[in-house]
Design a protein around this nucleic acid. Sequence first.
DNA 1: ATAAAAGCTAAAGTTAACTTTAGGTCAATA
DNA 2: TATTGACCTAAAGTTAACTTTAGCTTTTAT
Lengths: 153, 153
Amino acid sequence: MQKDPHISIGVVAKRTGVAVSAIRFYESIGLLPAIRGPGGRRLFARSVIRRVSFILISQQMGYTLEEIATLLDGLPQQRTPNKADWQKLSREFSADIDQRIAQLTRMKESLSSCIGCGCLSLKTCKLYNPGDNAAQQGAGPRYLLGGSPEVKQ
Amino acid sequence: MQKDPHISIGVVAKRTGVAVSAIRFYESIGLLPAIRGPGGRRLFARSVIRRVSFILISQQMGYTLEEIATLLDGLPQQRTPNKADWQKLSREFSADIDQRIAQLTRMKESLSSCIGCGCLSLKTCKLYNPGDNAAQQGAGPRYLLGGSPEVKQ
DNA sequence: ATAAAAGCTAAAGTTAACTTTAGGTCAATA
DNA sequence: TATTGACCTAAAGTTAACTTTAGCTTTTAT
């Protein structure tokens, strides 16, 4: 008899550092696959540890669980993800990290050229008006940050 | 008679692109200073527009409103913040952006050397065990991410 | 054999950051 | 002057991501 390939929720928790209640929650929203053993207990494949790690790292990157679920949909459901599967996800991630770094770099530049310069004229401020067209629309900082200027009430 | 140096909540909203209800909320938690005009309406100094911009940008950086409040405490309460005041905040910010960039860079390296490599052995994975000592403690990814391995239930 | 440890479910609670709703006041305009 | 638009307050609602509570069952260890 060889050892059971499945692990209990407690083991997943211990191995990942995530609370049992969180693992249970992840399973409940379909983020982690589990089968049930006799007595109704959750049984996880060992690969969920890697999956949980991926979730944690993605969260650190600012992804929501919903987005993470979409990312993980790229992994095969039928078989245990292999090297190539994880590499594919990894490449997508790397590209995303690069984008974030670029965004932060832009933000730093804007910061020193606007708030940093101490200019008090909003009309000439790059941070407020990244493109000159923004000024016409009377847009605020949100405009720079990707949102469209729409005011409610 | 010269023009009133104060602006209404609607103007603040329009200039910043932030909803009126949000401005009201910010004032309610002490993030934005306001006095009351006849009839009980909020009157803001023009400098709150800059303050709101700072809040938005900080939020983008991942700061909570509580942290932002602390940052803004560095600004003078008695007078309108001047060039030097904003420059000081800006410098602190730049340093923070640098740190975040460094963190992302580290993450990218870990990613390609661990998940990217497709290794399935958790024991030798850098991402799981940034320092070799982590392995002894049976720590999960949380460990890498700054948390201490503590499992409840 | 029995007691403690680990698990289970369902439902309610928590925090952040706001928005929505309801009901009323004040002020600029046709 | 009448009405519309801007504002006000207080309280409840919203979403994400979990945690806590309560009460019960199943394993595992002594």
